[in-house]
Amino acid sequence: YGGTVNLFTHTLKKQGIEVRYADPLDPKNFEKLIDDKTRAIYAETLPNPYLRPFPIKEVSDIGRKYNIPLIMDNTASPIICKPIEHGAAVVVHSLTKYIGGHGTVIGGIIVDGGNFDWTANPKRQPLFNEPDASYGGAVWGKVVPELTGANVAFAVRARVVLLRDLGSCLAPDNAFQHIQGLETLPLRFKQHCLNAEKIVNFLKTHESVEKVIYPTLYKGEVANRAKKYFKGGNG
């Protein structure tokens, strides 16, 4: 997504955060870029424009070797792909697209999978292992599981620290309309996928079309990933 690329390439760089890009065709490319300062791996389930399904489990397994969480943007494939089941620690969505479904409001969501140990390597994840002076010295990686009984330190810290300081709060009316869209998401997205398949089948035999890009048209390992990660459609 272009906005993400701009954030990573320009805005975060100005804030002293380095982002490195890896080609997901070979998951080992991610491991080659990991060093002692790597904090997370970020990816999209169906990256635009090539629509090659991301190797979620393969990269998640690499990250967990170093106590690095995989954060997946699953905006393009809700319902049909469930990254947390394949090892992703955090999933994000732009609600504005398929979940809201009506183009009337904007919003985003963070889903904490509750499956990542933020305390296993304190040096790797200092924000969850060092006292937070702004919140009475709370150590988020410890206090959240103790108080809630759930391993959701990422979501709680995002809520009580970043939301408090940066104000990225979803307006109540926007939240209401997104919930309305969520109720029909399974029906709508199933039809989206069926419509896409029909368009692909039409275009791939059209004499004026040189190339069609769609997950089911790939061969080899990329095709295997589509079968592995997508159930009930291909986006």
Results as ranks from 00 to 15, higher is better:
P47W: 06
D61L: 11
L33N: 03
T38G: 09
L33R: 07
K28P: 01
D26L: 15
P53E: 08
K28C: 00
A43R: 03
I41D: 00
K57N: 13
P53D: 10
K37C: 00
L46R: 11
R39E: 08
F30C: 10
R64N: 13
V59D: 05
E31A: 08
L25Q: 04
R20N: 10
S60P: 08
R20G: 01
R39V: 12
I41K: 01
L46V: 11
A22S: 12
G63A: 00
R39C: 03
F30T: 03
L25E: 09
E18M: 04
K32H: 04
D36Q: 11
T38I: 05
P24I: 07
K32M: 12
D23G: 01
P49F: 08
Q15E: 15
P49Q: 04
I41F: 04
D23I: 07
I17Q: 06
L46F: 13
P55F: 09
K14P: 02
R52S: 04
G63F: 00
K57D: 12
E58G: 05
D26A: 14
I34S: 10
K32E: 14
K57C: 03
D36N: 13
S60Q: 05
I41M: 11
Y42K: 02
E58V: 04
E18F: 00
I62D: 05
A22D: 07
Q15C: 07
A40S: 13
L51V: 01
L46W: 08
E18Q: 06
E44L: 10
L33P: 02
N29S: 12
R39N: 00
P53A: 11
P27L: 12
D35W: 14
R64T: 09
P24D: 09
I41G: 02
F30I: 05
A43S: 13
L33Y: 09
E31L: 07
E58S: 14
D61P: 04
F54T: 08
V59M: 06
E18H: 01
K57T: 13
V19F: 03
E44Q: 14
I41A: 08
K14C: 02
F54Q: 02
K13Q: 13
K32C: 01
P27K: 07
